[in-house]
Design a protein around this nucleic acid. Structure first.
Length: 268
DNA sequence: ATGGCCGGTGGAACCGGA
Protein backbone atom coordinates (compact mmCIF):
# COMPACT_ATOMS: atom_id res chain seq x y z
CA UNK A 1 0.00 0.00 0.00
CA UNK A 2 1.48 3.31 -1.08
CA UNK A 3 0.63 6.39 0.96
CA UNK A 4 1.70 9.91 0.06
CA UNK A 5 1.52 13.18 1.96
CA UNK A 6 1.33 16.35 -0.11
CA UNK A 7 0.86 19.99 0.90
CA UNK A 8 -0.92 21.17 -2.25
CA UNK A 9 -1.15 24.92 -1.39
CA UNK A 10 -4.75 25.36 -2.50
CA UNK A 11 -6.96 22.76 -4.16
CA UNK A 12 -8.53 25.26 -6.54
CA UNK A 13 -5.15 26.42 -7.86
CA UNK A 14 -3.76 22.86 -7.90
CA UNK A 15 -6.64 20.88 -9.43
CA UNK A 16 -4.78 20.34 -12.69
CA UNK A 17 -1.35 19.51 -11.28
CA UNK A 18 -2.87 17.42 -8.50
CA UNK A 19 -5.00 15.40 -10.91
CA UNK A 20 -2.03 14.78 -13.21
CA UNK A 21 0.04 13.63 -10.25
CA UNK A 22 -2.68 11.27 -8.99
CA UNK A 23 -3.11 9.75 -12.42
CA UNK A 24 0.61 9.25 -12.97
CA UNK A 25 1.88 8.34 -9.50
CA UNK A 26 -1.25 6.48 -8.34
CA UNK A 27 -1.14 6.70 -4.56
CA UNK A 28 -3.51 4.33 -2.78
CA UNK A 29 -3.93 7.00 -0.14
CA UNK A 30 -3.09 10.71 -0.43
CA UNK A 31 -3.01 12.90 2.67
CA UNK A 32 -3.44 16.49 1.54
CA UNK A 33 -2.71 19.70 3.43
CA UNK A 34 -3.55 23.33 2.79
CA UNK A 35 -6.60 22.59 0.70
CA UNK A 36 -7.64 26.22 1.46
CA UNK A 37 -11.25 25.32 0.87
CA UNK A 38 -14.42 24.78 2.80
CA UNK A 39 -15.77 21.25 2.53
CA UNK A 40 -18.67 22.36 0.30
CA UNK A 41 -16.31 23.82 -2.30
CA UNK A 42 -13.86 20.91 -2.43
CA UNK A 43 -14.05 19.26 -5.90
CA UNK A 44 -15.17 15.96 -4.40
CA UNK A 45 -16.85 14.51 -7.47
CA UNK A 46 -13.80 15.20 -9.61
CA UNK A 47 -11.63 12.99 -7.43
CA UNK A 48 -14.39 10.42 -6.95
CA UNK A 49 -14.49 10.12 -10.73
CA UNK A 50 -10.77 9.28 -10.54
CA UNK A 51 -11.56 6.41 -8.20
CA UNK A 52 -10.92 8.02 -4.85
CA UNK A 53 -12.96 8.15 -1.68
CA UNK A 54 -12.82 11.75 -0.46
CA UNK A 55 -12.84 12.96 3.15
CA UNK A 56 -12.18 16.60 3.92
CA UNK A 57 -11.76 18.87 6.92
CA UNK A 58 -11.63 22.37 5.53
CA UNK A 59 -12.17 25.97 6.50
CA UNK A 60 -12.48 29.28 4.68
CA UNK A 61 -9.32 30.69 3.14
CA UNK A 62 -6.51 28.87 4.92
CA UNK A 63 -5.36 25.54 6.25
CA UNK A 64 -7.58 22.51 5.65
CA UNK A 65 -6.70 18.83 5.25
CA UNK A 66 -8.13 15.93 3.27
CA UNK A 67 -7.75 12.22 2.61
CA UNK A 68 -8.13 10.68 -0.84
CA UNK A 69 -8.18 6.89 -0.78
CA UNK A 70 -8.73 4.08 -3.26
CA UNK A 71 -9.15 1.74 -0.28
CA UNK A 72 -12.26 1.89 1.93
CA UNK A 73 -12.00 4.10 5.02
CA UNK A 74 -13.61 3.64 8.42
CA UNK A 75 -13.95 5.75 11.56
CA UNK A 76 -13.09 9.11 10.01
CA UNK A 77 -12.55 11.83 12.61
CA UNK A 78 -11.74 15.51 12.21
CA UNK A 79 -9.82 17.92 14.40
CA UNK A 80 -6.91 17.33 16.77
CA UNK A 81 -8.29 16.58 20.26
CA UNK A 82 -7.35 18.74 23.21
CA UNK A 83 -8.88 22.14 22.43
CA UNK A 84 -12.54 22.29 21.45
CA UNK A 85 -12.19 26.04 20.77
CA UNK A 86 -9.43 25.71 18.17
CA UNK A 87 -11.04 26.84 14.88
CA UNK A 88 -8.12 25.84 12.64
CA UNK A 89 -8.61 22.78 10.40
CA UNK A 90 -5.30 20.94 10.65
CA UNK A 91 -6.04 17.29 11.46
CA UNK A 92 -7.99 14.38 9.98
CA UNK A 93 -7.71 10.66 10.61
CA UNK A 94 -9.20 7.44 9.30
CA UNK A 95 -8.59 3.72 9.24
CA UNK A 96 -7.55 2.40 5.82
CA UNK A 97 -9.18 -1.02 5.47
CA UNK A 98 -6.56 -2.90 3.46
CA UNK A 99 -5.37 -6.44 4.18
CA UNK A 100 -3.89 -4.99 7.36
CA UNK A 101 -5.93 -2.03 8.63
CA UNK A 102 -3.81 1.07 9.23
CA UNK A 103 -4.83 4.16 11.15
CA UNK A 104 -3.66 7.20 9.16
CA UNK A 105 -3.54 10.74 10.53
CA UNK A 106 -3.06 13.68 8.17
CA UNK A 107 -1.76 16.84 9.79
CA UNK A 108 -0.80 20.40 9.01
CA UNK A 109 1.27 21.60 11.94
CA UNK A 110 1.29 25.37 12.57
CA UNK A 111 4.19 27.34 11.11
CA UNK A 112 4.77 29.31 14.32
CA UNK A 113 6.37 32.43 12.86
CA UNK A 114 6.91 35.08 13.97
CA UNK A 115 8.53 33.83 17.15
CA UNK A 116 7.57 36.18 19.98
CA UNK A 117 9.15 35.58 23.37
CA UNK A 118 8.90 37.03 26.87
CA UNK A 119 12.04 38.26 28.63
CA UNK A 120 12.50 34.83 30.21
CA UNK A 121 12.44 33.17 26.78
CA UNK A 122 8.95 31.68 27.14
CA UNK A 123 6.56 32.12 24.20
CA UNK A 124 4.19 35.08 24.41
CA UNK A 125 0.76 33.74 25.30
CA UNK A 126 -1.64 34.01 22.38
CA UNK A 127 1.18 34.37 19.85
CA UNK A 128 1.77 32.16 16.85
CA UNK A 129 4.77 30.43 18.38
CA UNK A 130 2.84 29.58 21.54
CA UNK A 131 0.08 28.17 19.33
CA UNK A 132 2.61 25.95 17.56
CA UNK A 133 4.04 24.55 20.80
CA UNK A 134 0.58 24.09 22.31
CA UNK A 135 -0.52 22.24 19.18
CA UNK A 136 2.53 20.00 19.44
CA UNK A 137 1.63 19.19 23.04
CA UNK A 138 -1.82 18.09 21.82
CA UNK A 139 -0.10 16.07 19.10
CA UNK A 140 2.02 14.39 21.79
CA UNK A 141 -1.13 13.39 23.64
CA UNK A 142 -2.76 11.99 20.51
CA UNK A 143 0.46 10.13 19.65
CA UNK A 144 0.44 8.43 23.06
CA UNK A 145 -3.09 7.19 22.46
CA UNK A 146 -2.15 5.85 19.02
CA UNK A 147 0.69 3.87 20.60
CA UNK A 148 -1.59 2.52 23.31
CA UNK A 149 -4.02 1.25 20.67
CA UNK A 150 -1.24 -1.04 19.41
CA UNK A 151 -2.48 -1.15 15.83
CA UNK A 152 -0.40 -0.01 12.87
CA UNK A 153 -0.74 3.76 12.73
CA UNK A 154 1.04 6.72 11.20
CA UNK A 155 0.96 10.49 11.47
CA UNK A 156 1.99 12.24 8.28
CA UNK A 157 1.90 15.69 6.82
CA UNK A 158 3.46 19.11 6.83
CA UNK A 159 5.09 19.24 10.27
CA UNK A 160 6.74 22.62 9.66
CA UNK A 161 9.75 21.17 11.49
CA UNK A 162 13.32 20.95 10.17
CA UNK A 163 14.45 18.01 12.31
CA UNK A 164 18.20 18.49 11.92
CA UNK A 165 20.51 21.09 10.33
CA UNK A 166 21.22 18.65 7.49
CA UNK A 167 17.55 18.96 6.53
CA UNK A 168 18.16 22.50 5.22
CA UNK A 169 20.42 23.71 2.44
CA UNK A 170 21.32 26.76 4.54
CA UNK A 171 20.78 25.77 8.17
CA UNK A 172 22.28 28.99 9.48
CA UNK A 173 19.43 30.91 7.84
CA UNK A 174 16.87 28.88 9.82
CA UNK A 175 18.68 28.61 13.14
CA UNK A 176 16.23 30.66 15.24
CA UNK A 177 13.23 30.23 12.93
CA UNK A 178 10.09 28.61 14.35
CA UNK A 179 10.71 25.65 12.01
CA UNK A 180 14.13 24.88 13.43
CA UNK A 181 14.79 26.58 16.80
CA UNK A 182 15.59 24.18 19.58
CA UNK A 183 12.21 24.11 21.38
CA UNK A 184 10.49 23.21 18.09
CA UNK A 185 12.88 20.38 17.32
CA UNK A 186 12.76 19.22 20.92
CA UNK A 187 8.97 18.97 20.78
CA UNK A 188 9.22 16.92 17.58
CA UNK A 189 11.92 14.70 19.06
CA UNK A 190 9.87 14.20 22.21
CA UNK A 191 7.06 12.73 20.12
CA UNK A 192 9.47 10.52 18.19
CA UNK A 193 10.98 9.32 21.44
CA UNK A 194 7.66 7.81 22.47
CA UNK A 195 8.55 5.09 19.98
CA UNK A 196 7.85 6.46 16.51
CA UNK A 197 10.00 5.84 13.46
CA UNK A 198 10.65 8.80 11.18
CA UNK A 199 10.28 6.90 7.94
CA UNK A 200 12.56 8.94 5.70
CA UNK A 201 15.54 8.83 8.06
CA UNK A 202 14.95 5.11 8.63
CA UNK A 203 15.81 4.59 4.97
CA UNK A 204 17.97 7.53 3.79
CA UNK A 205 20.88 9.33 5.44
CA UNK A 206 22.77 12.44 4.46
CA UNK A 207 22.21 15.94 3.15
CA UNK A 208 20.36 17.36 0.21
CA UNK A 209 16.91 15.79 0.67
CA UNK A 210 14.17 18.40 0.83
CA UNK A 211 10.38 18.55 0.56
CA UNK A 212 9.83 22.33 0.29
CA UNK A 213 11.38 25.02 -1.86
CA UNK A 214 10.21 28.63 -1.63
CA UNK A 215 8.64 30.18 -4.70
CA UNK A 216 11.03 33.14 -4.28
CA UNK A 217 14.62 33.73 -5.25
CA UNK A 218 15.03 30.73 -7.51
CA UNK A 219 15.04 28.38 -4.53
CA UNK A 220 14.16 25.29 -6.59
CA UNK A 221 16.75 25.97 -9.26
CA UNK A 222 19.42 26.32 -6.56
CA UNK A 223 18.07 23.34 -4.54
CA UNK A 224 17.72 25.76 -1.63
CA UNK A 225 15.16 23.66 0.23
CA UNK A 226 14.13 22.29 3.59
CA UNK A 227 12.71 18.92 4.66
CA UNK A 228 9.57 19.57 6.68
CA UNK A 229 7.05 16.94 5.47
CA UNK A 230 7.35 13.75 7.49
CA UNK A 231 5.93 10.35 8.33
CA UNK A 232 6.00 9.13 11.94
CA UNK A 233 5.17 5.41 12.26
CA UNK A 234 4.15 3.45 15.34
CA UNK A 235 6.22 0.29 15.94
CA UNK A 236 3.48 -1.90 14.47
CA UNK A 237 3.47 0.32 11.37
CA UNK A 238 7.26 0.55 11.14
CA UNK A 239 7.34 -3.25 10.92
CA UNK A 240 5.39 -2.91 7.66
CA UNK A 241 7.67 -0.24 6.14
CA UNK A 242 9.25 -1.27 2.87
CA UNK A 243 10.23 2.13 1.51
CA UNK A 244 10.12 5.91 1.92
CA UNK A 245 11.02 8.51 -0.67
CA UNK A 246 10.52 12.12 -1.72
CA UNK A 247 9.06 12.74 -5.18
CA UNK A 248 11.07 15.90 -5.70
CA UNK A 249 10.64 16.09 -9.49
CA UNK A 250 7.04 17.23 -8.94
CA UNK A 251 8.45 20.62 -7.89
CA UNK A 252 9.73 21.21 -11.43
CA UNK A 253 6.38 20.75 -13.17
CA UNK A 254 3.86 23.33 -14.40
CA UNK A 255 2.13 25.37 -11.67
CA UNK A 256 3.67 23.41 -8.78
CA UNK A 257 2.95 23.59 -5.10
CA UNK A 258 5.93 24.78 -3.06
CA UNK A 259 5.91 21.34 -1.37
CA UNK A 260 6.34 17.93 -3.03
CA UNK A 261 4.84 14.52 -2.16
CA UNK A 262 6.57 12.28 0.36
CA UNK A 263 5.77 8.56 0.20
CA UNK A 264 5.80 5.41 2.23
CA UNK A 265 5.22 1.90 0.93
CA UNK A 266 3.73 -0.40 3.56
CA UNK A 267 3.29 -4.18 3.41
CA UNK A 268 -0.33 -3.73 4.41
C1' DA B 1 16.74 33.55 4.40
C1' DT B 2 15.34 35.89 -0.10
C1' DG B 3 16.68 37.93 -6.34
C1' DG B 4 12.10 39.57 -8.88
C1' DC B 5 6.54 34.51 -5.13
C1' DC B 6 1.96 32.45 -4.67
C1' DG B 7 -3.02 31.73 -3.26
C1' DG B 8 -7.17 33.50 -1.25
C1' DT B 9 -10.18 37.20 -0.28
C1' DG B 10 -12.97 40.32 -2.38
C1' DG B 11 -13.11 43.25 -5.81
C1' DA B 12 -7.70 47.02 -3.93
C1' DA B 13 -4.37 45.95 -1.30
C1' DC B 14 -3.42 42.82 2.26
C1' DC B 15 -2.73 38.52 4.90
C1' DG B 16 -0.54 34.13 5.50
C1' DG B 17 2.80 31.08 4.18
C1' DA B 18 8.02 29.04 5.07
Amino acid sequence: MKIATFNINGVKARIGALSDWLAASKPDVALLQEIKSIDENFPREHFEDMGYIVETHGQKGFNGVAILSKIPLEDVTRGLPGDEDDPQARWIEATVMGDTPVRVCGLYLPNGNPVTLNDDGSPVEGGKYAYKLNWMERLYQRAQHLLNDEMPALMAGDYNIIPQPEDAKRPEAWREDALHRLPSRAAFRRIQNLGFTEAFRATTLGEGHYSFWDYQAGAWERNDGIRIDHFLLTPQCADLLSGCWIESEVRGREKPSDHVPVWVDLAA
